[in-house]
Design a protein around this nucleic acid. Structure first.
Length: 328
DNA sequence: TTAGACCCCGGGATGTATAA
DNA sequence: TTATACATCCCGGGGTCTAA
């Protein structure tokens, strides 16, 4: 059986509490840890449950219970409150749209509906995988530390703390992360075999947008640049993921779709810039005393030249080689 | 406080039509 | 065959409400 090592992810805990749980200081660190976990296990997680402002939740917004210990944090003499909670489902988790789908199936379409219907070759990717990641936002109050664990000390200090919070007092913000056991992914493969079911990586989406802005339109060309980007930038000096991993080697259709979206986005952003420029001219006429400064989006001129250099260079190579490497 | 059910909007993935 | 444009379905993200 393939051995999966998640130490690259768990090493990011600022305070490690167990094999699969620990604390980090902010959302960026938490999301980075989540990404490392996804990469190590070749899984994807999506946000299931969330409240506004995770990572910078206003502690006066709701009332909170003062805790000295709970299932996640052991007693360490300092009180804390839990202000927010995020739950991530495995990509192959429970289908949260099941009731809506059932409704759609049972509702009778009108006789005069001309809506086309599509034959979906692939079924749902939802496989009721129970794996979840819990992120809890805690605020700890070291100033309200107690020397000994007695009921009386806890009660009186909790009371003082609640009064302090009412007056706008604050404490140290921490994010507790509880990772699932690998055995919980029991309805689908993980590791290198799970790569086939991965969605495209966000970094690659950004890269496609950059390439499109620089003038790239062909799927073949973009695919070649993505391959170079993954192997020479993202995984510089380390072993790149296998070609079967669709997170880093997306299919032609996925690339095509992202190219099209980037083209549309670029087109509208140009219109937006022109419109904004005109608007600013109007404002200048209306309010001559006010100061306006408009800096348009910088063109990827340098990027563009490097892309074309690459293109010319890679055109010398055999295109079919690349296609064979990263075939659908 | 937490978990579950549900809703809505918009984006992602992918099928289809068409032109070059 | 490939690029372009769009349609359709699925699902992610963010939220509310309610019961326990």
């Amino acid at each position: 059986m393939e051995k999966i090592d998640i130490s690259a992810a768990t090493a990011l805990f600022k305070i490690k509490l167990s094999e699969h749980s620990g604390l980090v200081r902010n959302v960026e660190e938490a999301e980075n840890l989540l990404r490392q976990y996804e990469l190590a296990t070749t899984t994807n997680f999506c946000c299931n449950k969330v409240k506004k402002g995770f990572g910078s939740t206003d502690l006066t917004r709701d009332s909170h219970k003062v805790w000295w210990e709970d299932e996640q944090l052991p007693f360490d003499h300092e009180p804390f409150i839990q202000v927010n909670h995020r739950v991530y489902d495995c990509r192959h988790g429970v289908d949260r749209h099941l009731s809506q789908k059932k409704k759609n199936k049972t509702s009778n379409p009108s006789d005069h509906s001309f809506k086309k219907h599509r034959n979906m070759v692939q079924g749902t990717r939802k496989l009721n995988c129970p794996a979840q990641i819990h992120m809890r936002e805690y605020i700890k109050f070291p100033e309200f530390k107690i020397a000994q664990k007695t009921e009386w000390r806890q009660k009186t200090m909790s009371k003082r703390l609640r009064e302090c919070i009412k007056k706008g007092g604050s404490g140290e913000r921490w994010i507790h992360i509880q990772l699932p056991n690998l055995s919980e992914h029991n309805t689908h493969p993980i590791g290198s075999a799970g790569g086939l079911h991965q969605g495209i990586d966000k970094m690659l989406v950004t890269k496609i947008q950059e390439l499109v802005v620089a003038g790239a339109r062909s799927v073949k060309e973009v695919r070649r640049h993505l391959k170079i980007y993954v192997e020479q930038d993202l995984y510089k000096g380390t072993k790149a993921p296998p070609k079967s991993n669709q997170r880093f080697y997306p299919s032609k259709t996925t690339i095509r779709s992202h190219i099209y979206k980037a083209v549309i986005k670029e087109r509208f952003s140009k219109f937006d810039q022109e419109n904004l420029q005109k608007k600013i001219e109007c404002w200048k006429l209306k309010c001559p005393d006010e100061m306006f400064f408009f800096r348009p989006l910088v063109k990827y001129s340098e990027e563009s030249s490097s892309v074309h250099d690459n293109k010319e260079q890679s055109n010398d190579d055999d295109d079919e080689d690349d296609d064979d490497d990263v075939d659908d």
